[in-house]
Each structure stands twice: as structure tokens, then as C-alpha cells.
Simulated scan of single mutants.
Amino acid sequence: MHPFIVFDLDGTLMDTIASITHEVNRTFQANGLESLSVETVQTLVGNSSAYLIDHGLNLAGGKDLGKADRKRILDEYNQNYYDHPIEGSAPYPGIVDLAIWLKDKGRKLGVYSNKPDPIVHRVMDHFFPRGLFDAVSGFREDLPRKPDPTGLLQMIEEAGFKREDTLYIGDSEVDGILGENAGLDTVLVTYGYRESEDLAAFTFPKVDSVEALTNYLKTGKGALS
């Protein structure tokens, strides 16, 4: 039984891919670059906005851009997304009810994301009841990005828990590696931005829907009944 449950954001709690793709393309088009498909953006999400933009530029006609231009375009994207993080985003159906159920069972809840910290807080404040999540953290310059476990382990410690108290839930290879690096019990979801085959290298339990995740948390290993 895990008293502290930490979720990834994009592809786990929230379906944000339409919003992310729109802001990527808004930024790229303003810089004379090609647009990317939702499917392409989806393969790039999970590491960080820096990874998304850097690799996206290589696919959108910006392969020869230097560091200064790449940094400028990244900053433009982050500002565009900070200004418009809501339209085209939504929690996965059933996920808010699951979080409320966990809270009612006395669990503490966290969110740990590679999305820039200010954007994470804007999204969480808009879509989830205030106070539902006890710890919310996105990428900050003072901490390394996932899958480095430093920030997540710091969150766990600051929340007053230990590794063995914590369950981490994510949807990507980055989350799987993070779970391994942090030494945490981990569940990977395949209803988000990765398919089962993308996560085949990981031995963690995998669930293919919010309903299946809910069932796992209620009846599976570490059941919360």
C-alpha cells in the first residue's frame, strides 16, 4: 500500500498533445518553418520542451539553425504555450475521479513533469480541484530533467515519505527509466503517448486505460482498499 502516489502529467493525467502541437506549429510558422503533425509531435513529447523543439526543428526545415536561434525559438514556444496551455487540453476521462478517490482514501498525490514548472502549475490549477494534489513540480533550471531521479526523490523527501512509500505512474520510456533510476514501484500507462511495444523493455506493470489503472490501484499489488 503506497501512501504517496506521483503522476507524470502529459500522457498520464492529461491529454495535451493537440495543445502542444498547435503551439509548436504557431511558433515554427512564425519563424518560416514547416508544421509538424500531431503524430510526430507525440513521438517527441516526454523529455522536455527543449528536446521537443530541438528535435522538432530538425524535422521542420531548421536543421541548420545555430544555438542562438534554437534558444530563441524555444523561448518563443515556451511563452506561447504558457499563454495558451488550456485550449486543446483535457484530463483523460475518469482521471479526476480517480484522483479524488485516492485522496478520499487518505493518499497524498504528486505530479512530476518535464514540462516547464510555470506551465505545469497553470494546467493543474485550471483542470484539477485546488488542493487535490499535494506536490506539483515541473522542470526547473536548478534540477536535472527526468529521467534523472534527483527532483523526484527531493519531492518524496519534502513530502515526508520514503521510496518504499511511493508509487510512480507515467506513460513513456523516460518515465520507465526514471522509475528504475529512482528505485520506485512504477506503473506505466499505454493509453497516453506510447504504445505497449514502446515500453516492452520495462518489467513494470502496464495498464491500457484509466479504468484499468483504477482497477489496478484498487485491487492489484499495493491495492488501496
Rank of each mutant, 00 (worst) to 15 (best):
R145P: 00
W101T: 10
N58M: 12
I100N: 09
S35A: 13
K206R: 15
S209A: 00
T43E: 09
R145Q: 10
A90Y: 12
L188C: 08
Q29W: 02
G131T: 02
L199D: 13
R122Y: 06
F128V: 06
N25E: 00
R70E: 05
V120A: 08
V189Y: 09
S19T: 12
H84V: 00
L143A: 00
D134E: 10
Y193W: 04
G170Q: 05
P144F: 00
E23K: 14
I17K: 14
G160S: 03
L224K: 14
N78W: 06
R163A: 10
K108P: 00
S113L: 08
S35Y: 14
H121N: 05
K103T: 00
T21I: 12
G183Y: 15
D8F: 02
N47R: 15
V45T: 07
T186L: 13
D69I: 03
H126C: 02
A201V: 12
I5H: 05
F127H: 03
D104Y: 09
A18P: 01
I100C: 07
S113N: 04
V207Q: 00
G160F: 06
F28Y: 02
N25R: 12
V38R: 15
V187T: 10
V136R: 13
I100A: 09
I169G: 01
F161E: 10
G183E: 14
L132E: 01
I169H: 04
L65F: 12
K67A: 06
G183S: 13
L74K: 08
M155R: 07
Y112Q: 02
D104A: 11
L52I: 03
K221R: 09
K162S: 03
P129S: 01
M1I: 10
K218M: 02
V38E: 11
F7M: 06
S49D: 15
L13S: 01
D8Y: 06
L153W: 08
F28T: 02
A135N: 14
I73A: 06
T40V: 12
K221Y: 10
G170H: 03
G88S: 08
A200Y: 10
K221M: 04
D171W: 13
K115W: 01
S113I: 03
I177S: 01
H121W: 07
V6M: 04
L57Q: 11
K67P: 00
G131P: 09
P118A: 07
R145M: 03
I95Q: 12
Y191Q: 04
P118G: 01
L167D: 00
L65I: 03
N58Y: 09
Y77P: 05
G61L: 03
A223T: 07
G222L: 15
E34I: 07
F133P: 09
D10W: 09
I169Y: 11
K206W: 11
V136N: 08
K206T: 06
T219A: 02
L36M: 12
I86T: 13
L109Q: 12
E23P: 01
I86D: 02
L143R: 14
D185H: 15
F127A: 02
P149E: 07
K218Q: 07
R107T: 07
L109E: 14
R130Y: 01
P91M: 09
V210K: 12
